[in-house]
């Protein structure tokens, strides 16, 4: 068993170092889908979370609880709902997105949007308690205060985006349902790992696993360092 594992590991490194085209295609698609979903979730979620953090309206507490709860939305349930929406007979079937990378982006966006909104809401609410008096004093209230709060909270908000990235890059259930795991078209690292493991092709599964963990570590480390350096200069 140990020998099998060692040989699988060696073969996995061979795939990575040898820049196998099929292997690289899966990695590239995974990054493309995950980063697209993250970008969309950031554009929508950061201002939405900030507004939720500084606004007071009836039902706000319920909304905060719902958003927090949605952070734990089971991927397969999200995948099923999006599948029904995008299927040919569904309300968005006319767009022909099902079993395309676009559907996978939609699925991942739905999964990570609550994470970005909820964590942004917390960061901005804390910042508002510190900045509120001054910003209201210079008439920056409501939506007008959001750019200032997002900019000044940018180093803390990196964590929100990293959490979203982590969730999206590790996700398998939803993208499997709406993407279909079609080779060369919608196969990502996670869906490929699941498939290759079930087929017994451990070298490819391991190679993809090592790459996935390595990419996640590299992106987190880069964001952490950028945050530390930036925070030092911004105070």
């Amino acid at each position: 068993m140990a020998t099998d594992f060692a040989s699988a590991l060696a073969a996995a490194f061979g795939l990575i170092v040898g820049l196998d085209p099929a292997f690289l295609g899966v990695v590239a698609l995974s990054l493309q889908v995950t980063l697209s979903a993250l970008a969309i979730a950031a554009v929508i979620g950061l201002p939405l979370g900030a507004l939720l953090g500084i606004s007071r309206f009836p039902g706000r507490t319920v909304l905060v609880v719902v958003v927090n709860a949605l952070m734990g939305l089971p991927p397969v349930v999200a995948g099923l709902l999006i599948f029904l929406l995008l299927s040919r007979s569904g309300p968005l079937g006319a767009f022909g997105l099902l079993f395309t990378p676009g559907a996978m982006v939609v699925a991942q966006t739905v999964l990570i949007l609550p994470i970005v909104v909820a964590l942004t809401r917390q960061v901005i609410e804390d910042l508002w308690s510190e900045y509120g008096d001054h910003l209201r004093s210079i008439d920056l209230v409501g939506a007008r205060a959001v750019p200032t709060l997002l900019w000044d909270g940018r180093f803390s908000l990196t964590t929100a985006l990293l959490a979203g990235f982590g969730r999206a890059s590790a996700e398998v259930g939803a993208v499997l349902i709406v993407g279909g795991n079609i080779a060369g078209h919608t196969r990502t690292m996670t869906t490929a790992i699941a498939l290759e493991t079930s087929k017994g092709d451990l070298p490819l599964a391991l190679g993809l696993g090592i790459t996935l963990v390595g990419l996640t570590l590299a992106i987190n480390a880069a964001a952490f360092m950028a945050g530390r350096i930036g925070a030092r200069f911004a105070g």
Partner: peptide, 15 residues
Amino acid sequence: RRHAMVFQKPVMLRR
């Protein structure tokens, strides 16, 4: 606004 306010604990932006 033609009036401004300075607080007991200065609010400094992270800039």
